[in-house]
Structure formats: structure tokens, C-alpha cells
Amino acid sequence: MRKISLDKLDLLFSEIAKSAKLYLPVDTDNGAKYDVWEDGKKLSDALNTVRSAKDFFFPQTENLMDFKMSGKNIEIIDTRSECEDFVVFGVRACDVKSFEILDRVFLADPVDTFYKNRREHGVIISMACNKPAETCFCKTFGIDASEPCGDIATWKTDDALFLDAKTEKGEKLLSALEKITEAAKDADAEPQKALIKERLARLPLAELETSAFGNGKTNELFNAPEWKDLSESCLGCGTCTFVCPTCQCYDIKDFNTGNGVKRFRCWDSCMYSEFTRMAHGNNRLSQLERFRQRFMHKLVYYPTNNDGLFSCVGCGRCINKCPINMNIVKVMKKLGGKKNG
């Protein structure tokens, strides 16, 4: 473990920025967002960014390829290029976990090279949550916000930042920072971890649990009468899916620029009425079906296909942003039987 005093944070950032583009949460009028660090940019104190960190690996839109057409001929132009190295600082434990969930989708055979390209060139520096909020329920999904994963984990105390490398990538970066950081004992960060742990245990949603969901619960939950009430007021907008760090559904669309065709991928939302519209018709016609799909996917289908891993990380963004305040916590409580009631 290494440490650096908080008044030398700028030095730390400038040192990291020497070798790779550095992103970190900064404050704006509309909450925190990830931005490129440059001299003068201050690390935000906010608990989390408004948008999730998934954008780094799975951006909202990206060009997949270009086509040039001439007469009856088509030329496919591979526009991929090797991504530049980058470092993301201050990613919270929940968002770090979301990368693992996305990995299992995009890195599964056949590998999505657009995702893999960025994933391989990104270094994640996580940060423990000193002040978890009332909307946090990462603990429900086995995430410990006092022990975040990532390539390097960090803990911020009143006067210092502790850094601990968790992967090879992390070790390489941390050793490059050796001359500006000082050695620290693991025990030095313990009081901070203990404080966070104690706070996490007292959160209002700390008792939320998942035993009613997961592998094999499909048929039990699919026809539950509760879906009707839960989905009743859903507007069918895409807010929850777009702020969610684990939602990864996408659409591939073509855009005719007048001098060629660009095929791009963009986020899509299973909440949209046209989401499953195919030539033969639409598979999910009612908002109830679409609403159910989203939560069943996170709580049942995904774990069924991925060794019980849930595709929710409890970051609480949907709680904050849903226009009508319907969210996964309410769904879990309503469907989760007595324990969550």
C-alpha cells in the first residue's frame, strides 16, 4: 500500500496524466461528471457521477464501420483503431463491479472488439465511498464499498489518499508513481474502512436482499400479478436504462451521410415500445412486458446465464432519476416476499 497527502493530489494527477489521459469526476452545475483532468480541475466530492462510468467502455454512440457504395458494389471500411491508454480515477465500487457484468456480455464469444479495445487500454482507479447515501444498496449484491476492486483501489481520509494495487496493470501504474507516493502499511487505511463498513450497515436499504431472485426463478416470477401495479405508471422512457451502469442493450443503425454510409451502434432501451420491433412484428407489445423484461433481466435472466451474478450493482441512479420514481428497489420489495416487505 502507498499513500499521498491530499494536498499533493494535483501532483498525483499530473504524474498520471503524463503517461495516459486521465479522467476523474468533477463538479458541474448539474452534478458530477467524468472529465479529462487538466491543471486546475478539482476532484469532485460527490458520492457518484450522474452518468455511470460505463461510457468509457460502452459509449452511447460509436461508429462501427463505414461503407462506400458505387453502382452495385459495396466497400466495407474497417474504421477501428487502437485505443489510446487512459486512466479513470475515482470510480466507485458499484461502477467497478458493473464492468465485470458488462465484460460477461461483451467479452463472451464472439468477442466484441470495440469494447475489448477500450477495456484493455483503460486502467481503473477505484475509490471507497466515505459517505454512502440513502439510495445505495450495493451491499445487497455482495459489493463492499469499503473494499472497491479495480486496478488500483484508493481510500480518502481527512488528510491522505491510500492507494493499493489490485491487478498487474495497477501495480505497473502504482510503481510508476513511487517517487511521489510514500509507503504505507495496510493497517493505516483500516480505520477508514471500518468507518465505511459501519456506515454501510446502517443504510436504510441495507436489509434489502435477493433470495427471491436469481437462477431458476423465471417461471415463479414471470407471471406474478405484482407486475401490473409496478408497471402501471411507467412512462416507457429510457432514463433508468441510460443512467444504469449495467444496462447494455444496443441497436445498430445506418446513417446515410450523402457520401457513404456509417453504421453505428447506440444505446437502446428495453423500455422503448419499438425495442423489439422486427419485420414479423413486436415481441413485447405492452409496457408491462417491457417493464418486466428489464427487471427480470437484471434479477433473473442474467444470473441464470452468469453463475448467479446479478446485473444490478445498487448504485441508486435509477432511484434518483426515474421521472415517476419507480425503481428496482421497489420491484424487489414488492416481489421479494416477506423478507423485503
Binding site: 466484441d112 423465471t218 444496443y250 445498430i252 428495453c270 423489439t276 422486427m278 415481441n283 423484461q293 427480470m296
Partner: peptide
């Protein structure tokens, strides 16, 4: 990956 065709 795109998330549409699933039945359960």
C-alpha cells in the same frame, strides 16, 4: 448481446 430476442 443486443438484448432483444430472449424468451426468459
Amino acid at each position: 448481446k443486443c438484448g432483444r430476442c430472449n424468451i426468459g
